[in-house]
Design a protein around this nucleic acid. Structure first.
Length: 150
DNA sequence: CCCTGATTCGC
DNA sequence: GCGAATCAGG
C-alpha cells in the first residue's frame, strides 16, 4: 500500500479522533496496525488525548476521556458511523474537496480515505450547524484544500 | 489470551 | 520511509 495524502490525512484525523491503531488500519485497509503506528510516529503524532501511559515513574495524570461524541442528542439514531457506507460518492477525491453534504447531513461529511477503497467513510463527527464538516479536523482540512487548489 | 501503543531493525 | 517483529503494558 502507498501512503497517499488522502490516507495520511485520514490517519491523522482518525488517530487524533482517538481511534485505535487497529481501527485505523481496518478503515484504511491494506495496512496492519503496526504500519499505522509506525507511520503515526513518523508523522510526529504519538501524543494524543488518550489514556496511554508514558514513562514508568511519570505522573499518572487522569485524562478526562476526550470522547468523539459531544452533543447529547436525544434523537432516535445514535449515528453509528458505518465502516463502509454502501453509497460512495461518484467523484469527490483529488481536486474535488467539495464533497456535497447531501441528504441527511447530520455529522461531518468530510471524506476519509479513498472513495475507491473499501474502508472509505465519512468523518461522522458532530459538525457545526450549517457546516458540513466538523471543526476538529475536517473543517481545517477542507479549508486547506481550498487554499491548495487555489 | 485478548487487546493497546512503543520501539527496534532489516529492508 | 516502511512495517513485521518484538517489547511492555492493561
Amino acid at each position: 500500500m502507498e501512503w497517499t495524502e488522502e490516507r495520511i490525512e485520514a490517519l491523522r484525523a482518525l488517530w487524533m479522533q482517538g481511534l485505535t491503531a487497529s481501527q485505523i488500519a481496518e478503515r484504511l485497509g491494506g495496512v496492519s496496525r503496526n504500519a499505522v503506528i509506525g507511520k503515526a510516529h513518523r508523522l510526529g503524532l504519538s501524543a494524543r488525548p488518550s489514556p496511554i501511559k508514558r514513562e514508568p515513574g511519570a505522573k499518572p495524570v487522569p485524562m478526562p476521556r476526550p470522547a468523539r461524541v459531544a452533543p447529547p442528542q436525544h434523537h432516535a439514531e445514535p449515528a453509528p458511523m458505518p465502516a463502509a457506507p454502501p453509497a460512495p460518492q461518484p467523484q469527490l477525491s483529488a481536486k474535488a474537496p467539495g464533497a456535497a453534504p447531501a441528504g441527511g447531513g447530520k455529522g461531518c461529511m468530510w471524506p476519509i480515505g479513498d472513495p475507491k477503497q473499501a474502508g472509505f467513510h465519512f468523518c461522522g463527527a458532530p459538525s457545526e450547524a450549517g457546516r458540513p464538516y466538523c471543526t476538529q479536523h475536517c473543517a481545517a482540512a477542507y479549508h486547506k484544500r481550498q487554499v491548495d487548489a487555489a
